[in-house]
């Protein structure tokens, strides 16, 4: 008999029997726990170093390629499409347009976040198509964010900037 024709009483999902914290504590589940300490310090290199130093000065820097005519951000020393060295540096505006966004309510441990986090891909003004940077949206009710919304960077005070993508605190709606 086709399943669809039967009256199915069980729920659409089955919970099964979860392993409880007690089971683990009492070693009912045999295991060995280890917390590896593996640390890195990634060299930023030529292109990203200049980009990060630019952020410290409150500037978003990009590079241009005379082959494909793209303005690229984040910058790189070579154009990956034309496969040749880049042709120069340009300073971009700290304004842009939201390409896509999402409102997150849950942290990586599946716990509710105290406040929803809005992450967006922001197409930077002056950069070529598909040259967006990922960042946070603030100073707006999450539900009011939309694709195509114009935004502007909110920078940390100069003395707090350290040459990191977080030197921009978040992006806020551009009025007008």
């Amino acid at each position: 008999m086709a399943v669809g024709k039967r009256k199915i009483e069980c729920p659409l999902y089955a919970e099964g029997t979860a392993v409880s914290e007690e089971d683990i504590k009492t070693r009912k589940v045999t295991h060995y726990e280890d917390h590896p300490d593996i640390r890195y310090s990634w060299t930023a290199g030529q292109a990203i170093s200049r980009f990060l130093n630019g952020l410290k000065e409150g500037k978003i820097l990009g590079v241009k390629c005379d082959g494909c005519k793209r303005i690229m951000v984040p910058p790189r020393m070579f154009c990956e499409l034309c496969y040749k060295p880049i042709d120069g540096w340009v300073e971009l505006k700290d304004t842009g347009t939201i390409l896509t966004y999402s409102i997150s309510y849950i942290d990586p441990d599946a716990r509710p976040l105290p406040k929803p986090i809005v992450v967006a891909l922001i197409q930077i003004d002056g950069a070529s198509q598909n040259m967006a940077i990922m960042h946070l949206i603030g100073e707006i009710e999450p539900e009011k964010v939309y694709v195509g919304m114009r935004v502007k960077a909110v920078w940390k005070p100069e003395n707090e900037r350290e040459g990191s993508v977080t030197d921009i605190k978040y992006w806020k709606p551009l009025e007008g």
Binding site: G45, Q46, I48
Partner: peptide
């Protein structure tokens, strides 16, 4: 050590 180049720049 190569403090001036990222691994991507080394590969390039």
């Amino acid at each position: 050590t190569t403090p001036d180049l990222s691994w991507k720049e080394i590969v390039y």
